[in-house]
């Protein structure tokens, strides 16, 4: 079941989103991180989140993915309000609509690289052969040597793991994508490949939110920027 992205309705829409961390085991310290956050991303758009380190860029991205809980507001992705949806709705969303390339590759021991990348397609019911073929295509494009495809990425270098992560993130044509530092720790050749992948995703209508420290990359693929420091509680109007 695919969720249609009408041109009128944005693919990703945040309104009134707030978050604080309460550290119960450290004297119940309350750390407000965000208040009154707003964001709209249309299909085919790429928006960069900017702001100083610690301003909440990754936090906001994780909230869109449902990995962090929002204390207030709505986070609507493809018609589903992640802030209030049932776990299984979020899981379905993540499987079909919303992709996420984080900074870290969480490695499951024993699973070969090819299967790691093919997994999003396999869980969508795509046949094994077809899924693996697509995975192979992406790994080749990202310059991961074929002899590594049957090994688990556990022992790969940081850059190699990052490329496997990216391959997995682009295996399925997600209508919405979240990219956290996709070009970090990549050499110029692979950086260019990733930017091409992002441009292709935009061209097919994906709504993308990205965090790029690399100003050049940001300038090339992003249509506009949103400074998250605008949502820092002290700065809220």
């Amino acid at each position: 079941m695919s969720i249609s992205a009408e041109k009128k309705m944005p693919m990703i829409e945040l309104s009134g989103v707030a978050k604080s961390f309460v550290l119960h085991n450290q004297g119940s310290a309350v750390i407000p991180v965000m208040a009154g956050a707003e964001l709209r991303v249309e299909a085919g758009e790429c928006v960069a989140l900017t702001g100083a380190s610690g301003a909440g860029k990754s936090t906001l991205m994780r909230m869109i993915y449902g990995n962090y809980r929002a204390n207030a507001g709505q986070i609507v992705v493809g018609g589903v309000d992640v802030a209030s949806a049932e776990p299984r709705e979020i899981i379905q969303l993540r499987r079909e609509v919303l992709g996420y390339v984080s900074q870290f590759l969480r490695v499951v021991p024993r699973v070969p690289t090819l299967d790691v990348v093919a997994e999003p397609l396999l869980s969508l019911g795509v046949e094994e052969e077809k899924a693996r073929a697509r995975a192979a295509e992406l790994l080749a494009r990202l310059n991961i040597p074929e002899r590594l495809w049957s090994l688990s990425p556990t022992t790969f270098s940081g850059g190699e793991q990052q490329r496997v992560n990216i391959a997995r993130g682009f295996a399925h044509d997600y209508p919405a994508l979240l990219l956290d530092e996709p070009t970090a720790s990549l050499d110029p050749v692979n950086r260019a490949v990733v930017l091409e992948l992002i441009e292709a995703a935009k061209a097919r209508g994906a709504a993308i939110v990205g965090i790029f420290h690399d100003a050049e990359a940001r300038a090339r693929v992003c249509d506009r920027e949103e400074d998250v420091s605008a949502f820092t509680p002290q700065a809220a109007a």
């Binding site: 961390f21 309460v22 550290l23 119960h24 085991n25 994780r62 449902g66 990995n67 962090y68 809980r69 776990p87 299984r88 979020i90 899981i91």
Partner: peptide, 30 residues
């Protein structure tokens, strides 16, 4: 996919696994 955290016979927190583990809300879960 989902998680329930129990303490002293009660469920103190529940939700999406990665959310409960990465952004625990209850003192015990933390």
């Amino acid at each position: 996919d989902r998680l329930m955290v129990m303490k002293d016979g009660h469920v103190v927190e529940s939700g999406l696994t990665d959310q409960v583990l990465d952004d625990p809300q209850h003192a015990y879960t933390q």
